[in-house]
Design a protein around this nucleic acid. Sequence first.
DNA 1: TTAAACTTTCAAAAATTATTGAAAATTAAT
DNA 2: ATTAATTTTCAATAATTTTTGAAAGTTTAA
Lengths: 167, 167
Amino acid sequence: MEFNEAKEKFVSTWGALGTLWGINKAMAQIHAILFISPDPLTMEDIMEELGISRGNASMNLRHLMEWGIVYKINKTGERKEYFKSEKDVTELARQIAKERSRREIQPTIKVLKEVSGISSNGSLKEEEFIKKTKELYDLADTADTMLNKVIAQEQNWITKTLVKILK
Amino acid sequence: MEFNEAKEKFVSTWGALGTLWGINKAMAQIHAILFISPDPLTMEDIMEELGISRGNASMNLRHLMEWGIVYKINKTGERKEYFKSEKDVTELARQIAKERSRREIQPTIKVLKEVSGISSNGSLKEEEFIKKTKELYDLADTADTMLNKVIAQEQNWITKTLVKILK
DNA sequence: TTAAACTTTCAAAAATTATTGAAAATTAAT
DNA sequence: ATTAATTTTCAATAATTTTTGAAAGTTTAA
């Protein structure tokens, strides 16, 4: 496989994965080309490389910046804006995990806590509801805590060791 | 908050979370009502409770069965089919993780391995491509391994302890 | 301050995904 | 074998999401 084929394969796979994760294709693909590019790219570069419109590029770059995984840079003496992605994969994983926890897991945990807190009238239906939503609450809370700890900036001895042992 | 309000809130939150995770709303909501129901439900019950069509219920029940988190049961002497969900949250998490790993992470890992294996012509572009896709490969592989180990059926001493320590 | 270079916004169009509903298929009892 | 109960399939429709493109907005330099 030569470079261009590999690049296309990578970009389209990254786009497809994004789609499965609720991130739109253009956003994931823009991230992909920035991630593998040794130099920052302009909006024009991105539009051309992916064959997408200016509006699309602009909006998705904004989203990527909101996620904290793409930065805008200005080259002195140049009018155009350049974009580059977070290059450290650990940091990338951390940002994504953080964002997903904030947007998805935490709101869900909040609702699970609320609804599992109702008082039961003693019926089987209500007892079961409370029991099951409590169990989900515990699961989600554990998962979220672990996600945050494992990904946390300061990797402590335990987690570092753990990664080695588990892998 | 009384039971019906709590139930609706739970069902709709579960549906919304599913959507964010690339699982359609009906599928997630069907799972939700089965999960909190003390008894198995018929397709009719599900259609009525969620206000969805027969075709929709049928297809999404099939998907849930493919995911291994809903089972069909037949009551002796009854024509109708009943459905019940996996009730053990640990098992639920395990099945979901397994399915996602199989459908999403593993195919991605495969592509990353392929594309990072090309031979470079020595240019900065190609060197960077190989370096970055290799890093992603390592990250995805580590994440997948950990996911599988932590969720694995036979929780060993290390993981059990770990969950306690991290939480 | 004007003009050129560039970016953002957003209504409309296109593409994708989910849902319906009715016909076809299946199942089980008579 | 026929019928009635039930489920599945799938083409058509509806809903949602993404993308476009051009007008409006910004920024910088002269």
